[in-house]
């Protein structure tokens, strides 16, 4: 980091936040504060939906995941376009027609207040914790690599996002997300182009030969984490639940210039999300090729952690692992060069034999990386051994020119701020509309008081997320654990909404107790089965719908719906 990088980083990060704060400083209407400017067009809505979904994890960890395991992760997004079509056709018209502020307000109109409260509390619990991770995840990586203080990094990003989100509400969130996405696109394309200029000819073919380009796997093995089927069906239910029932997304498209703008914003995402994710995972697969030709490729990408152990009591063991890795890496590079020669000669038999040797050499390097991680765990059982999160940032800091380094760090912070702002905005809205108003029904008509309450709740959740990030000692795989928790809760939440939309004879008590029973079933299955976590979305949803219908048959006329869909 040199002064130019700091100017670019702080200029973009604080400039966009200040612009959003200044432009929306007079937001005093509840509708504008909670739903955004009523003239918002589909392009802004589409970018806002995209910015809320993609946090720093998307841009920092996904390339690392592709480096390590290939691009199969992209299959997780296969259900997304289909889910967005269903949200456009079914969910959005009903939300718009009823003029609700939150998805859970609809549950209150359709069922009863206890079902509304159940939906709102499930959202607040899950998203409140998740918002802590949204600022913790980039802070831990960037502070480790750049030597910044972790606490200060968390507090700085937390305060910046609280200032503009509390000031302008949804209007400020949409406005800043548009510019943050411009920074993100600009930075990622710049990094990709620079990477392409540093690659040898045949890089894509080499990534494929090393098994990194398995984009689609039609296997029906349920134990496999990423397959076409788990992505299509599990991903469909996860995306339906996320876009249709999670207030942090519902709030992005529920306002704006009308139903048409919301629908086109969602269709914009349906068309661009998979190509965008493909671009990010391809960046990771090509980073893998790039690092094959770097003599200094580390055995463990979190260099700060590795250095601590090199200088520790077991330093000799770690130094030995460094040497062993360097030798194997050099041997692998020779095999790669032999494969490139065979490829250039056009001799397919020689090329096939060279490929086998190259893959064997890669397996040897992978084995020594495994040894290194085991050594770290032996030295410190709480050591964080997942170093794939550090692959892309290592490339950024070692290969990009000054100024561009600042731009890429701005990408990481912009993505953290944009997804965090969407979450805070939704948490504040749900707390105000679904909780506070229930306790103070007479205050519902006092607009100024409602806006004040929404601002206080938004600030509270911002401080809660900061406190959570500062105090929680995050486990190594907590981020993935939170994705699993989301899958455990999302399915049941979606089930409640599907019953609301499509089973008009089911009443509030039936769906309320069915949801609790379905949730208990999913949690029990999670602890007793070993299946890909995306499937829990489908199981939870199916169980909730089936139990609701069965309970309604038992309860009969004692449990009538408050209102009907038709």
């Amino acid at each position: 980091m040199n002064p130019l990088d700091w100017v670019v980083l702080l200029g973009t990060m604080l400039g966009i936040a200040a612009y959003g704060t200044w432009r929306t400083r007079h937001t005093d209407h509840l509708d504008t504060y909670l739903k955004g400017d009523s003239a918002t067009k589909w392009g802004t809505i589409g970018l806002s939906v995209m910015a809320t979904q993609a946090s720093t994890i998307t841009y920092l960890s996904l390339p690392g995941q592709a480096y390590e395991n290939g691009i199969a992760f992209i299959q997780n997004y296969f259900g997304l376009p289909l889910a967005l079509i269903i949200v456009c056709a079914v969910f959005l018209p009903i939300y718009r027609k009823l003029g609700v502020y939150t998805a859970y307000e609809y549950l209150g109109k359709r069922f009863d207040s206890k079902t509304r409260l159940l939906g709102a509390c499930l959202f607040l619990l899950q998203r409140g914790v998740q918002s802590g991770v949204t600022i913790y995840a980039p802070a831990i990586i960037l502070s480790s690599v750049l030597g910044w203080q972790l606490d200060l990094t968390i507090i700085f990003t937390g305060v910046v996002v609280i200032v503009y989100t509390v000031t302008g509400g949804s209007a400020a969130v949409s406005l800043t997300q548009k510019w943050q996405m411009a920074v993100i696109f600009g930075g990622m394309v710049t990094a990709f182009v620079i990477l392409l200029t540093k690659l040898p000819p045949g890089a894509t073919e080499m990534a494929g030969a090393m098994g990194k380009l398995q984009a689609v796997d039609f296997s029906i093995d349920p134990d496999k984490r990423y397959t076409f089927w788990s992505g299509l069906f599990g991903g469909l239910f996860l995306s339906l639940s996320y876009f249709g029932t999670d207030q942090s997304q519902v709030q992005r498209y529920i306002g704006g210039g009308g139903l048409r703008e919301g629908r086109l914003g969602l269709m914009f995402n349906a068309m661009l999300k998979i190509p965008m994710q493909f671009f990010i995972v391809m960046l990771g697969a090509l980073l893998f090729v790039f690092f094959q030709f770097q003599p200094e490729t580390p055995v463990f990408f979190n260099r700060a952690e590795w250095q601590r152990h090199l200088e520790g009591a077991d330093g000799a063991k770690f130094s030995e692992l460094d040497k062993k890795h360097a030798e194997l890496h050099r041997a692998k590079r020779e095999k790669i060069e032999a494969w490139m020669l065979a490829r250039a000669s056009g001799d397919s038999r020689a090329k096939s034999a060279a490929r086998e040797e190259m893959v064997t050499a890669q397996a040897a390097v992978d084995a020594v990386r495994g040894e290194a991680k085991n050594a770290l765990l032996q030295a410190n059982p709480r050591a964080k051994v997942k170093d794939s999160d550090y692959v892309f940032i290592t490339f950024i800091l070692s290969q990009l020119p000054h100024g561009v380094i600042g731009l890429l760090l701005a990408v990481m912070f912009a993505s953290a701020l944009s997804s965090k702002a969407g979450e805070l905005n939704a948490l504040g809205t749900t707390s105000t509309i679904d909780l506070w108003r229930s306790l103070r029904p007479l205050a519902a008509h006092d607009e100024a008081r409602n806006v004040r309450a929404a601002k206080w709740f938004t600030a509270f959740w911002g401080l809660f997320a900061m406190g959570f990030a500062l105090s929680a000692s995050f486990a190594e795989n907590l981020i993935e654990a939170l994705n699993i928790i989301a899958s455990i809760f999302y399915g049941v939440m979606l089930g409640i909404f599907l019953v609301a939309f499509f089973f008009k004879r089911v009443g509030g008590s039936a769906v309320f107790f069915a949801a609790i029973a379905a949730q208990a079933l999913v949690i029990a299955m999670y602890f007793s089965l070993n299946i890909g976590y995306l499937w829990y979305n489908l199981i939870g949803c199916g169980a909730c719908v089936a139990f609701s219908l069965a309970l309604q048959a038992v309860l009969g006329s004692r449990d009538q719906p408050v209102e009907r869909n038709s």
């Binding site: 959005l92 380009l213 984009a215 076409f228």
Partner: peptide, 13 residues
Amino acid sequence: GPVFGVLAFTRFS
């Protein structure tokens, strides 16, 4: 109330 690419590219392996 005015769209899915499925990569099977894989067949690089």
